[in-house]
Design a binder for these strands. Structure first.
Lengths: 204, 204
DNA sequence: TGCCCACTATACAGATCGGTATACTCAGCG
DNA sequence: CGCTGAGTATACCGATCTGTATAGTGGGCA
């Protein structure tokens, strides 16, 4: 049910949209605990009454923030995978291309899920499955893509791609060296060369 | 100058040591912003007066927490590097062995520096150089070790080892799959095979 | 003996936290 | 006209935040 790509955004009242937009920016830039609901309401041009009428609690805003960010990343990635064409090797590398662009203009401070996990200790927190779920989804995606590329045992290679991907996001967030996601993509190529053969999956 | 491995810990009064110990545990397990000074003092069996007499501010406790953790990791790593012997290849791999043990019994929630960075937005925060400094130190360490192993161009390989290392810590903290640091070590071996040759650096 | 240091106990200040309450405006719509 | 949904403005709740103040205890040391 619903307008697929338009998403649930349109279900929100204008004020609620501004609340979520402001909260998402503030949570990512300053951290979840460092941002109070008064600031969110002020930045959204909304009173706390409206904020609580729409979301009920700060915790729920956090869940919406992470869920929607997860959703937007998956949609962004899906478009890039479509654009990459059918060649399995290129599809895998397009994940890193997508991550690079995403990191450059939406993730200057690293992965929002990893950062949120640093602040949410309680595994019972409703945001916890969203965070862990995205990482497991990414691992499963790498496994699927590798299997489609003809890898005999996609598990280990998928885990390697996972490490390169996560490591690159951290290095990008802390600005350890220039363009770490591009470096991760080059290493992913080497992994694919080993697993699939130098032209495996690509031109077969 | 001073008692090298004994560290600055002995310079602290008994109460101050307990404060720092309690704060370090709480900051790591629950996050920095989620922990107040009242809780720290209570857990340390100390009054807030003592806490402020010794440290002056919560911010300073945060700086001490990260600095000392950084210091302990470097000391731990130095001992593992010594124990690894002179063979450059084994020395590089011993970094991952050290990281594995460190992660298993002191970093169940991922890298403390990365987690702290998620909460500290201000680059002017006195803890910021400690965080970024450790990552740059690790990158420089990989470069040094690779150069000692005879790598012609240690830069790119060092960055790859960095991505594997950071990615493994994240995967470990989020429990994405089992024993990611061991997996990172195996991939590091493959990197060394490529850069140094299958027995390069090791037996020469 | 007398001093100093580390520490305890208690209370409080000023600000901010998440969350709630009352009362009002205003546009769209049947 | 009158209703409803969305939002505004303001005031308040109890709790907690960082940080400070006053007063007192007890051991080591010269």
């Amino acid at each position: 049910m619903g307008a697929s790509r338009a998403g649930r955004q349109t279900e929100l009242t204008p004020g609620a949209q501004r609340v979520l937009q402001a909260a998402s920016r503030l949570f990512y830039e300053r951290g979840i605990h460092a941002v109070g609901v008064d600031l969110i309401a002020a930045e959204a041009g909304v009173t706390k009454k409206t904020l609580y009428d729409r979301f009920g609690s700060k915790e729920q805003i956090v869940v919406e923030y992470l869920s929607r960010r997860d959703e937007r990343w998956k949609e962004f990635l899906a478009r890039r995978l479509d654009a990459a064409g059918p060649a399995p090797r290129e599809r895998i590398l397009s994940v890193f291309d997508a991550a690079r662009e995403w990191a450059q203009d939406r993730s200057a401070k690293g992965c929002a899920m990893v950062n949120a996990h640093a602040e949410i200790s309680d595994p019972e927190h409703p945001a916890h499955p969203v965070i862990v779920g995205q990482k497991q989804w990414m691992l499963a995606l790498f496994e699927d893509l590798l299997a489609q590329a003809g890898a005999a045992d996609p598990g280990p290679a998928a885990r390697t791609l996972m490490l390169l991907h996560e490591g690159a996001l951290v290095a990008h967030g802390l600005d350890v060296f220039a363009d770490p996601v591009a470096h991760a993509r080059r290493q992913a190529e080497a992994v694919l060369d080993t697993v699939l053969g130098p032209d495996g999956g690509g031109l077969r």
